[in-house]
Simulated scan of single mutants.
Amino acid sequence: MKDLLVITILGEDRPGLVAKISGALAKENVNIVDIEQSVIRNLFSMFMIVDLSTSEINDQKLNDILYSLAQELKLKLEIHPYESKEVEEAKKKLYNIKVIGKDKPGIVAAISSVLAERNVNIERIKMLSRGELIVMEMIIDIKANDPNELRRALIKIADEIAVDIIFQSEEKAKTRKKLIVFDMDSTLVDAEIIDELAKAAGVENVVKDITARGMRGEIDFKEALKERVKLLKGLPIEVLEEIRDNLVLTPGCEELVRTLKAMGYKLALISGGFTFFTDALKERLGFDYAFANKLVIKDGKLTGEIEGEIIDSKKKAEILEEIAKKENISKDEIVAIGDGANDRIMLENAGLGIAFNAKEILKKVADGKLTKENLMGILYCLGHTKQEYKK
């Protein structure tokens, strides 16, 4: 280790800096064993660990050479002996955090405090985007911490400082995703459609109460759905058509879906709602798959019944698995996005489960949470840049 030196360099960025610095080392047969370089707002920074054992010069001679070069290039340079012990990378438990939201003071402090309290080491921090949204990525070593407890703590602090957060293993975060699965109500559509139907049927308050309890997981979804649909008996099909033709989508979702489609992702809509609306969204937005419950319509009116098996939480997960088999992809290559208890198993089974504007029951099992203001943040969770999706 006595032959290893740590070199840090800072200065104004311009072409050729890396070539000149590495060239000076190569000329003296000094080997670069580790290196990281970046540019932040035109500020060049480079960190290197170099090995002198392959060279005929000593550390003092290297100091003279590099300090002279730094002066010529108008850079700040520091050189120190490398004294740290070897770290066994295989023993690290690396996790990936993405923080998404509007910029404000204290975001890094709040997140890093939660990590420091648990002796979690931050390996790297990088700003992925700055503008309407800031997107920051952290790579951390969670050591002996329980990842589920840490995820809950991070979601809690994210709620307190009004940002969104995604937390998953670095291995899963690196896995390229191929299928994106959305819920419909209060996810793609900025409303609960059954509540809109209930309003037209004059049973809004009763149905809204059942919907809210079902989304929180307080009552069985199947029974809750049957009870609500029964209250819609006699509703004319014209009412459904009017609601369908005037659906208000969550701001940004149309742009997001079209961008994902253009990038080559397969898209699925798996809803505990109704095919009358999911089929229309599939055609409008270009989804590859759409699944939902089928309302029975007779003589132009709802009968208050549902045809076939009801799509509840378990059924959503089964459909997810069926699509994965058909597309020949693994669960780790799937992103699932939903907002309520009915999406729980689907999110747990996906490689990335995102609780969107979600109830607390879903935040407990999801990899992270997004609010509708930050919907486009999904692209960053998939590893894309602002430049890519603006093309």
Rank of each mutant, 00 (worst) to 15 (best):
G304K: 14
E305R: 13
E305W: 09
I306C: 15
E307G: 12
E307P: 11
E307T: 09
E307Y: 09
G308H: 08
G308Y: 06
E309H: 07
I310R: 10
I310H: 09
I311G: 02
I311R: 01
I311E: 03
I311C: 03
D312M: 05
D312E: 14
D312L: 04
S313C: 11
S313R: 10
S313Y: 09
K314F: 03
K316R: 09
A317D: 07
A317C: 11
A317P: 02
A317L: 04
E318D: 11
E318K: 04
I319E: 10
I319V: 13
L320H: 12
E321R: 11
E322K: 15
E322V: 08
I323M: 00
I323T: 01
I323N: 01
K325P: 07
K325V: 03
K325G: 09
K325D: 12
K326I: 00
E327C: 11
E327F: 03
I329Y: 02
S330A: 12
S330L: 07
S330G: 12
S330I: 01
K331L: 10
K331A: 07
D332G: 05
E333I: 03
I334E: 00
I334Q: 02
V335S: 03
A336Q: 02
A336I: 01
I337H: 05
G338Q: 05
D339T: 07
G340H: 02
N342I: 01
N342C: 05
N342A: 06
D343F: 02
D343Q: 03
R344S: 09
R344D: 01
R344E: 07
I345Q: 08
I345G: 00
M346W: 00
M346Q: 08
L347Q: 07
L347T: 03
L347G: 08
E348W: 00
E348P: 00
E348I: 07
N349Y: 00
N349R: 13
N349K: 13
A350D: 05
A350G: 08
L352G: 02
I354W: 06
F356A: 04
N357R: 04
A358C: 10
A358H: 08
A358E: 13
K359P: 12
E360R: 13
E360Y: 11
E360G: 13
E360W: 05
I361C: 15
L362E: 07
L362R: 06
K364A: 12
K364T: 10
K364R: 14
K364N: 11
V365E: 14
V365C: 13
V365R: 13
V365N: 14
A366M: 05
A366R: 03
A366P: 04
D367K: 01
G368N: 13
K369A: 15
K369M: 15
K369I: 13
K369Y: 14
L370W: 01
L370N: 08
L370D: 08
